[in-house]
Amino acid sequence: MGNGIQAIHPFVMFFYYSCLGFFAMFFNHPIFLLAGCLALIGVNLSHDGGQAMKQWTPLMMTMTVLIIVVNPLINSRGTHVWFDLFGKQVTLEVMLYGVVTAMSLLMILLLFVSLNIVLNGNKLLYIFARILPRTAFLIMMSIRFVPLLKRRLTEIQDVQRLKGMTMTQGTLRERAKSGMSMLQILLSWSLEEAVETADSMKARGYGSGTRCPYIPYRMTKSDKRWLSYLLVAFVICGTGGLLGYGKIIIYPELGTLHLSLLDWVVFACGMAVALFPVFVEGREQLKWNYSI
């Protein structure tokens, strides 16, 4: 199960990601969003040193730039005209709106990169097993078949290649034809074998009553503490947001970007939520390094 953030109960993590997703769409103050993005970058760094994030960087960069550039070209609302571009007025509001949208999306992407590392396959399935037990079970079974079918296909390819059927050489038409034949073999073979899988399920009582899923994760005391911590911070942020803190008015005319004291309180609570994985990992590190 791993240490640090991997050891936290999936429900707590799921709650954390839901909170952050909510924040990303709820607040639109650029400072809030920027801080959110930075916090998530920090979270990703704390997971694996940014390995997974690195793969996504090109996509995220292009998307951010694209939104910021395209938005002024197709939109000309707002009142503070900045400059003219190809006879179109580019307003401050439009620019800012582009930045806010881009950051909000970026935050969600970063969130999913982290979610992919922390709530991998089984933990996610475990969460959904409560809500959608049948779907979760079906997904679990299908995942199981991926490596199996892959292995079978390699076997078929090895055999059929020596019979002159390949997908790597010949004209496109020939390749498509041999590909189809191989899939046909894979299908009939797998269906044949699946009869035994079905028997094995029946032999172990599948469908004889309501399934009662095994729960491999235990809600520990520290999980409960973290959950209440997240809950309190989230409620403060939520009420603050409803009262208008952490939000700005962009259209039709840009409001103030100034942050009041209460804005800062909401900001602090938001950060407390966003940086939760970093705290968990940090505590673990401290314990390792300084406890006797």
Binding site: N122, M140, M141, R204, G205, G209
Partner: peptide, 17 residues
Amino acid sequence: VMDEVMQEIVFGLENLG
């Protein structure tokens, strides 16, 4: 049937509730 050893060994027990 299942994708993880732990899930697989409890499969029968889960079915029987």
